[in-house]
Write a protein that binds this DNA or RNA. Structure first.
Lengths: 214, 214, 214, 214
DNA sequence: TATGAATGAGGTTTCATTCAT
DNA sequence: TATGAATGAAACCTCATTCAT
């Protein structure tokens, strides 16, 4: 019988690495819950199950820890490869798949936490805005433009190629709604996004893919 | 001879009221700049030109002051009456006017400040979300629904009546973009919104109203 | 009957000033006792009878407080005007008076404290060395040189004019001895200084002034 | 093939002893540089090229390490046998040799370090004062008294026999001066000590031995 | 009513020391 | 024996809030 209940990390180096991970995890939860300024380093340490000083063995200070979290989670959360669907499909179908995959992420608490952080702390951390822009925004825009220019030009496809924001806008709006107002009124994001795509791509029917419901 | 150089409020009551206003004003700037947690009461007092204790004569504590600011600014900023255009116009034109008026608000620093506050602090202040929802969101949604149901049903009008978010989404997206990424890349919100309306209302031409450029 | 036992400071400003003095006093004692690094700001506050934060109202940080103490005490302790004796006396007599007056200072605990501080902390505070040099050393040397060059040149007077250190050396040695080894062996500094002056000014007799023993 | 490049100490005991020496050496440098309180055990370990825990294998705690350093260096630095000159020489010449040898020590950084430590930390470490007194002071005084009482009694020799401090005072003064004010003004200690001895021993000429300049 | 000096709880960070490897 | 990751007591400093004037 081993001492540790989960996946016994025997070696010293592995234990240390596990602790580092635990701190990042705990810090994400705490920061996501209370924001940067209101989070206490001691609470992070406690939640990670380590001593107060241990946090400083891995991260030189609070701000560094914060940045590391963002860096560690930004790409995995927003741009994981499974979101890129097979290239032979029609754009509408591909976007639908991407959106659905995005919506599924909402079941992942970490996703909500990192999203909240990014939105609420960005104005006070210009560095964070810079990182986020380069890692997520720029790539997403490039991806959308790339997809749209491969298509026969319709009014909508030309509009989206110029302003990819228009494609994403309802996703962002729904996200923020969910973040802020889920207590007031739920929003059926899946339905909304279908309607949204119906407007942008009137020639196709959303029902084609509806059966793959979950 | 009066003490104050501008608009001398002689009576005691007027002076007190003026001080209260000054504190709210100063607090908005400071909160908008640094966020709730990082703003110091002393800085607010200094910027308002009053003593540290005076703030507590008007607001029982920091959190109360914060809520008062939001309440004081939310309606004037988001729902000022001039934004409601003449009812005889076509919906597309009316939305265009509302959007344009909204865009003009970006020149007002107070607008940016209150917007930043609402977005960044809402997740930590559920009460704030509640207030904001009732004062701004609910009304806006009701207004849009009302406008759309008066119209002959097109696919787009039906979609918007169901999900008014779809109409507003690009405005929100553009707003957040401007708030976060104006340092990275400017966004031509006016053009984007025109394109957006062109998609939703394909039968009308944006050019109709373009000359009222401003 | 008043509340405060000593000199009741009624006005607000006076109270504040009194508190500042109390902090300086307490800090001198604590620093003198334990040295800069080992002294806790909280202990200073407690000894001064004020809250922890009050210290920071008067001195921006620990180092500033330390420097202020040195500046506040250096001149009063080392160069008070009563030490400058009547100019009509012979140099030997004048030095004897100066030395005696210096020795009397040892009864003043503040003198011991500031002396200890200056000696022990100077190597870690070059700024302190600079201040001390300008305020105390330079003036003392200039004074001695001035006195000696007014005299008929003897071998000793010429030597002292060139190296005023030679006149002061036994004082410093005795001071350090007292500071460090008073627990091991007392030193009769008064007698030692008399012998010292007898060597430097062999033509005069020490007995002249011995009766004014205290 | 040995692990260490210099003076390969093969045996386990030798290695351990070498490590102990390295720690003492490193600790002296660090303590001398920053003082007891501001020196970090980790820096000592790093400078000694050993792990943080290794220090504690040799010295039970920081204070013990500090005392060991003093004990280890005090006698070698202040009372090395080469300073005791041939007994057939005149006292003035012997003192001059001793002084000169002492002055040469200033080229040795270790000497400066231990000196700084002794002066600055003694008031906080009574134990240190005790050790220093017994190992250095008492012996020095006994030596001087011994030398002087072997001489024909002159006024100066009698004075020095009673107060050996008078002989040493300029050396101490010059030492402290060099330690504290070398940045402000250099002091020609060699010349000063010659002048000093000229005063104490007027019958002899300093020039007798000047040729053995270096 | 208005002030700002005073307070002390609470936050971040450091570092001597321990102990499993 | 040697290591350095881990710990937590303790230090400095901030700032929301109070209260005497």
């Amino acid at each position: 019988m081993t001492k540790n209940s989960k996946a016994q990390p025997r070696s010293r180096a592995e234990q240390t690495e596990a602790r580092r991970k635990a701190i990042l995890e705990a810090a994400l939860e705490e920061f996501g819950l209370k924001g940067f300024a209101m989070t206490r380093m001691e609470d992070i340490a406690a939640k990670a199950g380590v001593g107060k000083g241990t946090v400083y063995l891995h991260f030189s200070d609070k701000e560094t820890l914060f940045e590391e979290i963002i860096k560690a989670h930004l790409v995995p959360v927003f741009l994981n490869p499974e979101k890129a669907p097979a290239p032979h499909l029609a754009p509408r179908v591909r976007f639908e798949k991407i959106f659905r995959s995005f919506l599924k992420s909402f079941d992942n608490p970490k996703f909500i936490q990192i999203l909240t952080l990014v939105i609420t702390e960005m104005p006070r951390f210009p560095k964070l805005a810079e990182i986020y822009y380069q890692l997520v925004i720029e790539r997403s825009i490039a991806l959308i433009r790339d997809l749209m220019t491969q298509e026969p030009p319709t009014p909508a496809s030309r509009a989206i190629a110029e302003f990819p924001h228009l494609l994403i806008a309802p996703v962002l709006t729904g996200t923020i709604w969910t973040l802020l107002f889920s207590a007031q009124k739920k929003l059926d994001m899946e339905k909304m996004l279908t309607v949204h795509l119906d407007i942008l791509f009137p020639e196709t029917s959303a029902t084609t893919e509806v059966q793959c419901h979950e």
